Amino acid sequence: MATEVTATARPLVVHEQDVEAVPLPGGGRFVLLEDSLRTAGLLGANRLVLPAGADGTRPHCHHLSTEVFYVLGGTMEFLLHGELTAVGRGGLVVVPPGSVHAFGAAADGPAEFFALLTPGVVRFDYFRQLGRIARGEAGWDSMDDLHGAHDVHFQGGPAWR
């Protein structure tokens, strides 16, 4: 059975020269590919590059979406249902709604992944603000009103590895 797509969804091509990169300390960056606006909410997509040992996020879940990670390079460490799992280049991780997860680059080198959120949630402003916080330009409390609006629900404190 085919899934019906809304009439406003159209094919989308995103070229590398047209994307926004949000710099992070140590050479990391968010690469903002699709914010779900041009796909009528079907998906959101980004890449994340992290320096060796850097956390991507602390434990959280999404109530509305499935998140899919494909490791492009290096080794990522994922916390999935309380277990730490290393996933190397070419590995795929699928996190259904409600599943608590966290991720970061392994200590032995930088890592990069492609992330897909489906259905999509408009989150580019969320990533931009995370970049400001990581660079010391804003405090963590500046995110207080953003988490729920972007379907990010933290579970526990920042320490997870």
Score class of each variant (00 low, 15 high):
F124E: 11
R10W: 02
P51T: 04
V152E: 08
G73Q: 03
Q155E: 15
N46C: 11
A115Y: 00
P25M: 06
Q155T: 15
V94H: 03
L48V: 13
L130E: 15
L92M: 04
H62K: 08
L146D: 08
G26L: 10
A86E: 13
T118P: 00
S65W: 00
L33N: 11
R123D: 14
L84P: 01
L33Y: 12
F114S: 01
A52F: 02
V13Y: 01
V87G: 05
A107S: 13
S65L: 06
V19P: 07
H81M: 12
P25Q: 07
P110D: 09
F69I: 01
V14I: 13
A45K: 03
E20P: 04
L12K: 10
D144Y: 01
H81Y: 08
F113N: 13
P96V: 12
P97D: 09
D151N: 07
A115P: 00
V93L: 04
P110M: 04
P158C: 01
L130G: 04
L33A: 13
G120Y: 08
A107Y: 01
Y70T: 10
A159S: 13
Q17W: 08
F114P: 00
R47P: 02
P11A: 14
F78Q: 07
G41Q: 05
S99F: 08
A107H: 10
H153P: 02
L24R: 08
A115K: 05
L12S: 00
E112Y: 13
V13K: 12
S142I: 00
F30K: 07
L42Y: 01
E137N: 08
R135V: 05
M76V: 15
R47L: 14
R29G: 02
L80M: 08
D144K: 07
L43N: 01
D18F: 06
S65F: 06
E67G: 10
H63L: 12
F124A: 09
A21S: 13
G120H: 07
G120K: 07
G82E: 06
T85R: 15
G82K: 05
R10P: 03
R10G: 02
L117M: 15
D35S: 00
H63K: 12
E83L: 07
V94L: 11
G109K: 05
H147M: 09
P97S: 09
R10S: 06
N46G: 14
G91V: 06
L33P: 05
C61Y: 09
F127Y: 15
D141Y: 00
V94D: 05
L116K: 06
E16L: 00
G73K: 05
V14E: 05
V93Y: 03
V19I: 14
L79Y: 08
A149N: 03
T85Q: 14
H101R: 15
L42N: 03
H63N: 11
E77G: 01
A106Q: 00
T39M: 09
G28W: 06
I133G: 06
P23A: 14
D125W: 04
S36I: 01
A9V: 14
V71N: 12
E112K: 14
D144C: 00
H15A: 10
P59T: 12
L92S: 02
F127L: 14
G82V: 09
R123I: 08
L32I: 11
T6P: 04
H101I: 03
L50W: 09
T57G: 14
H153V: 13
A86G: 07
T3R: 14
V93T: 09
A159V: 15
V122Q: 14
P97G: 09
F69R: 01
D141G: 00
E20N: 02
T6A: 13
H62D: 07
F113K: 01
P23W: 10
P119N: 04
Q17A: 15
